[in-house]
Design a protein around this nucleic acid. Structure first.
Lengths: 206, 206
DNA sequence: CTGGGATTCTAACCCATATTAGATTCCACC
DNA sequence: GGTGGAATCTAATATGGGTTAGAATCCCAG
């Protein structure tokens, strides 16, 4: 095995898998219990290791938390970018917004504890842990700003609407869902449809 | 001074004032730093006492936090109820909703650190601290449910809209504002107007 | 004044949890 | 099958911050 192969295979080596298990466990616990309620012992238990083993992969609890937050913000952004890129060229601006709402909600509620952890704890972790995740969130915001700006320029969003504030309110509505969502009692399709209605007939030109 | 007077004046006695200062300080720090970031020493400093003095009025940090959360939820509810009760009898359902949006946002952003503390930390404090505040929040939710239900019955909200989900999304949008609001760079009037637009032309019948 | 409860302080304590030390096990390769 | 580094464990340590003890101070009633 040469060094190139070593690097390539390292992604699935036992070591890398353990690191991944720990990171996944941290994301799950953080999304469920929040920053204040997350013990390293909880994370270790979910990951199936003893707490000190975490220090073989992360230099501190905060570094672990920071990485979860960054991965969460990063994945949400990449997911949305991917979904938007896959749309036909002639998709209308409003339809793009609808797809974005759909993608954001389904990703945060179904696909990623990282996203949930990132959203719930963004405002609750120490300042220094927010720097790298905040950069990702800024890029994510830019995607949404562009969607709204283009929709407004195309006349598909009312010209007199403050799209910056509307965007912040909409993302807030969708982010807050993690605080009350219960997959057993609510339909995700219904949620997506309602959120889309909030935008379409809320921001759409008559 | 008889005992009745003693009780009456106790509300403004030095002792009661100190207790109030501590509670106010806790609300302020909690709203700014969140549950995880709130040290008793921070609260004490803001209140102008030493940390152990807090224990003369509250039996533990968690009891102090719980009281802040309850007061926050309680005040928001009473404020909205009051504002709604003051409206003319013939106010339309949609106008009542607009007033409610206005009241919620202005109260949480201008009038009450308690409200902000309550909103930001509801999902981040230990389970046992949520019981009493949750009861208040349930009553608050009921106010909003009634507003939406009446508006839908009156035909001022589209019949096919899932008003429960819409309400949760709307309250989420407004609650999340505390995560990004900066009074120096944004206009509160503009915010209120945008949130109202989100409801009116979003949920309103055409 | 002054005595005594109310209030607040200083100094200590404790305890949960993050972190480190050092021993041990695992495992790929010779 | 031995050997050396990687990975993980057990046991101990460190420390921030909530909490308690007991002394000091305040302040009003008599």
């Amino acid at each position: 095995m040469n060094s190139t192969e070593a690097v390539a295979s390292s992604a699935t080596s036992k070591s890398a898998q353990t690191r991944q298990r720990i990171l996944d466990a941290a994301a799950e616990v953080l999304s469920r219990k929040g920053y204040a309620g997350t013990r390293l012992s909880d994370v270790a238990q979910v990951a199936g290791v003893q707490a000190p083993a975490i220090y073989y992969y992360f230099s501190s609890r905060d570094e672990l938390v920071e990485e979860v937050m960054w991965v969460g913000a990063n994945r949400v952004r990449l997911h949305l970018a991917e979904v938007l890129a896959a749309l036909p060229e002639d998709t209308s601006c409003m339809d793009r917004l609808m797809v974005a709402v759909d993608a954001h909600l389904r990703f945060e509620l179904q696909l990623s504890h990282y996203a949930t952890a990132s959203i719930r704890n963004a405002g609750h972790v120490p300042e220094q842990l927010r720097i790298r995740p905040a950069a990702e969130e800024a890029l994510y915001s830019r995607l949404w700003r562009e969607l709204f700006a283009e929709a407004q320029q195309a006349g598909e969003v009312r010209a007199d609407l403050d799209i910056n504030m509307f965007r912040l309110l909409l993302l807030g509505a969708m982010n807050w869902v993690v605080e009350w969502w219960n997959p057993r009692t609510r339909s995700l399709d219904e949620l997506v449809a309602t959120a889309q209605a909030m935008v379409r007939t809320g921001a759409g030109a008559v």
